[in-house]
Nucleic acid binder design. Sequence first.
DNA 1: CAAATCTCCAACTGATCAGTTGGAGTATGG
DNA 2: CCATACTCCAACTGATCAGTTGGAGATTTG
Lengths: 207, 207
Amino acid sequence: MAWDTARTRRLLLEAAVEEFAEHGPQGARVDRVAARAGVNKERIYQYFGGKRQLFTAVLEAELARVAGAVPLTAEQMADLGEYAGRVFDYHCAHPHFLRLLAWEGLEDGRTGVAAEDERAAHYAGKVAAFAAARENGLLTAEVEPAHLVYAVYALATWWFTAPQVVRMIMAGAGDDSPAARRAGLVRMVRRLTASAEDRSGDGSAHA
Amino acid sequence: MAWDTARTRRLLLEAAVEEFAEHGPQGARVDRVAARAGVNKERIYQYFGGKRQLFTAVLEAELARVAGAVPLTAEQMADLGEYAGRVFDYHCAHPHFLRLLAWEGLEDGRTGVAAEDERAAHYAGKVAAFAAARENGLLTAEVEPAHLVYAVYALATWWFTAPQVVRMIMAGAGDDSPAARRAGLVRMVRRLTASAEDRSGDGSAHA
DNA sequence: CAAATCTCCAACTGATCAGTTGGAGTATGG
DNA sequence: CCATACTCCAACTGATCAGTTGGAGATTTG
């Protein structure tokens, strides 16, 4: 049978995403990654170099996936609430990513940030789109575009980043389903980003 | 000289806060905690039981501190933007806490949440205060009170939770000082929480 | 088909670290 | 002033784990 090194590599990377998302760069066990992949752990050193590099590879792979998955089109720009909703949906469906990001944040300073240039460019694009929308009157001028970008991501993702706190906050509330969370998120982002003209309406002008 | 066991305990706890905030429950080293405290590590097992229990003790101690530090008074309730600003200020001054919380969030599910009942009650109090303010017309009725509580904390704390992402988002922006961040935060929370009457004004009615 | 190369793996190594132990020093109570 | 109990510590132990090695088998190439 022909060798399929690409498959072995892919199996290892998939296993590593799970392992690192679950346990973080410290808690992840190289042996477990190999076992999950059904491959000898020595392959990790051949293909990736070591645990550290494997983590970076995992982060870069997931970063690439997420960047393409939730694009910010001109249409999205007209209703940022719905855009935030889609970001929320993505992370509901792929809970690994924000865990990896959280671990990266906690390691921040100790090690460099993966793929920093591409990511910086990615976010610069978002900020530029927000700034353009503000020029066109689609977006409030009361708040800095960069701060609005911050708010959209903060509101869309904090559910996943501090799940234990969210659970306690929502404990009393009646409906705490993902759908209810999403609806609240969409409404909040609309309120936050709506321009003055839109705001004169009923607050759900975009619906 | 008289024994001062309380002091030894306190030294260990302070050292442990630093160590756990920096490296997390996995990465923290018992030997390092003892060295920082200038105490033999065996004391940790006598006073706290073990690494795990020490982490819980650390979390509970910090939780107690933060709960008292940023109260939500009736006066605060009238300007939630400023309340969010004070939460932000606290975490600027005490960066340990949110790191501990982030680690707790990542461990969520694997181990129980520390002091869950007190904390749940704490957040229930916030939600109740928001609900009351809504009745009084101080707060928008468009969004669930619990979701507004979520938003205030998400917006006030995400700076610290995903510092690497925030850095990239803010890269282009001119002024990215803590003061600028705080100002943006205050304005956003006001926009988000203002009731319909307030919103008819210029958006900074609370200033 | 033989030499060179690649894939795979079990077993090993050396370092690290949580947790323990035994004993020496120090206060306290009778 | 002695018995008891508490405080402190250096050295040890056993487990875990990242990373290595040497070799067995499969594949390619000339």
